[in-house]
Write a protein that binds this DNA or RNA. Structure first.
Lengths: 143, 143
DNA sequence: TGGATTTACATAGGCACCCTATGTATCTTG
DNA sequence: CAAGATACATAGGGTGCCTATGTAAATCCA
């Protein structure tokens, strides 16, 4: 039988393959995850976005800069802290997020229909991934 | 409520974050997936490996070359086809696979224990991912 | 059987993504 | 107010992955 350790390593392996497969077929830039975060969590600073997306702060700085260049987010100064910037979705960014979500989401949904799995199974998979990544205390995650 | 399209796009987003999170903490090179394939499927050629890992043939050529440089696989000529090479795990490769599987697998397992999810949920997540990627007919995948 | 096509793999060139190290400006605190 | 912490940017570099293309061998077929 499969232990949870085996399953854990398979989860990572398959997740990597899924991401690449989707990226190949449907042009899924990394910045979309940031648009998604802003949509879910509201306006945030660069460092908070980096923590939420689990990347380094410089990586998020560059991603936000590119998103701003594309007009999908705007950066305004934080009135309460002159060091910080507040990143916010633009209408164009929200529209782009919708487009990309539809593209990748429909691909997965279509493929799911060809398997024996239910939508509930998909929801379970999403919940497992989210909760694995979710960290109540910032330093508590082992991932 | 969540539609299967929403869930599909969330699956991709979270999968991407998981892969990056694990790579950051546990040095998980892409070649490990190839070791894993060889372990599961036995000796294979470069093109077959590329299809199984869902990457381009040149990408797999480079990955296999690097794995061979590290001594984790060997390439012998295919006796039945002079164009082809057969890639096979070495004992060192099998050991490395075990090490990496333990590292990433234990991280996921430990993190899972801090959530409300069961091992069955994790198994469901893995099965969903695998079946989404599984393609009976080679051109049938929409991912 | 011999030329055209297909197939297996390698090489070249390049882009996307992400990291660490470091610098600068601004808070916060003793 | 000096010292440390924090927010963000820049510099430089590595991995992962792609398309385009080349070479050699296998297959197909007139």
């Amino acid at each position: 039988m499969s232990t949870s350790v085996d399953l854990g390593s398979q989860l990572v392996t398959h997740a990597a393959r899924l991401v690449r497969a989707v990226r190949r077929r449907h042009d899924l830039p990394a910045g979309v995850r940031v648009l998604s975060l802003l949509d879910e969590l509201g306006d945030l600073g660069v460092t908070a976005l980096a923590r939420a997306d689990r990347c380094s702060q410089p990586t998020m700085s560059a991603t936000v800069r590119d998103l701003a260049d594309d007009g999908w987010v705007v950066k305004h100064p934080d009135p309460a802290d002159a060091r910080a910037t507040v990143v916010a979705l633009t209408p164009a960014g929200r529209a782009e997020l919708g487009r990309v979500r539809r593209r990748s989401g429909e691909a997965v949904a279509a493929r799911l229909a060809e398997t024996t799995h239910t939508v509930e199974d998909l929801a379970t998979a999403v919940a497992v991934l989210r909760d694995l990544l979710d960290h109540s205390d910032p330093e508590g995650s082992h991932l």
